[in-house]
């Protein structure tokens, strides 16, 4: 009996002491599931291994001792400078670490920085060319996916690692959702483009597209704005004015109805003499 009671309390304790996630605090509790889905895709999903070769399988055998050991791929920590969000680096990032250049020398710090170049990418859905900072890997990925739009739409947010790419992806998705209005001058082309890319729309609802590609502060601002718009305070002066107008109208209606109470209204006026002295009044 006692043991079961302890168990119960432990469970309650774990509930109360559980670390609150960012979605459990303040206005963030009102974020819709659509944004949570994007957040999972962006921040919680494990990005693809770019700078190391992950070991395959679950177990491996030590060659010397024959011991069976689990395989644990610990990814290399990456640095994301501000510039990464303004370009499309294709998942590459800066690596900070050490080099051991000689057996008898002390390690030296080193940054491995990807080779960046500025080039043009062509978005078919948006019907534009864009000048962006990319790496060779980006161009290769674009070619492998047969186009920039396919690359953006097929790659999860965690692998894009770029705010620019996410915003473009959102724009492309909303463009598709609206049926490619940029091709309104050429209905045949419009249809072709829509047919080519419409498969991607199946994995998003309109609400999810609306909430896609927003940073945390942007999402919070959006919630706040929606909330503010929903219960916008009406100025009291407007309320009172309305009430007054209604009252006056009612009074007017009442006045129209014939009533013989003129004497009552004039009784106190007749007593007053505006030109008389104060004492007389």
């Amino acid at each position: 009996m006692a043991s079961s009671r302890i168990q119960v309390t432990a469970r309650q304790l774990s509930k109360t002491l559980k670390k609150k996630s960012r979605f459990d605090i303040g206005i963030a509790t009102e974020l819709p599931a659509a944004y949570k889905k994007f957040w999972r895709e962006w921040k919680l999903l494990k990005p693809a291994a770019v700078h190391f070769i992950p070991q395959e399988g679950k177990w491996k055998r030590d060659e010397l001792t024959g011991e069976t050991l689990p395989i644990q791929n610990i990814p290399l920590p990456l640095k994301h400078p501000a510039e990464i969000y303004e370009g499309i680096w294709g998942g590459e990032a800066v690596i900070k670490g050490f080099q051991k250049r000689d057996m008898h020398r002390r390690r030296v710090p080193h940054y491995w920085v990807p080779v960046l170049k500025r080039t043009v990418v062509k978005s078919e859905v948006l019907n534009t060319h864009l000048s962006v900072t990319v790496t060779d890997r980006t161009i290769k990925l674009i070619n492998d996916h047969y186009g920039f739009d396919h690359y953006l739409l097929k790659t999860p947010a965690c692998d894009l690692v770029s705010m620019l790419a996410l915003k473009l992806k959102k724009q492309i998705l909303s463009e598709l959702m609206n049926g490619c209005p940029r091709y309104a001058h050429d209905p045949q082309k419009q249809k072709e483009i829509y047919e080519e890319y419409k498969t991607y729309l199946s994995s998003y609802t309109p609400e999810e597209i609306d909430w896609y590609g927003l940073t945390w502060p942007e999402a919070l601002n959006k919630v706040a704005k929606i909330k503010e718009a929903a219960n916008k305070p009406i100025p009291l002066k407007n309320v009172y004015r309305k009430n007054l107008v209604e009252k006056l109208k009612e009074a007017a209606i009442e006045a129209k109805t014939p009533t013989d109470d003129m004497s009552s209204t004039t009784s106190w006026l007749s007593k007053m003499n505006p030109f008389g002295k104060k004492d007389e009044a």
Partner: peptide, 19 residues
């Protein structure tokens, strides 16, 4: 998309530093 999965499997080549 089923294509995506195929694509990811195909692309083993990287274009960067591999450490």
């Amino acid at each position: 998309d089923s294509k995506l999965f195929v694509m990811v499997v195909e692309m083993n080549e990287n274009n960067t530093f591999i450490l």
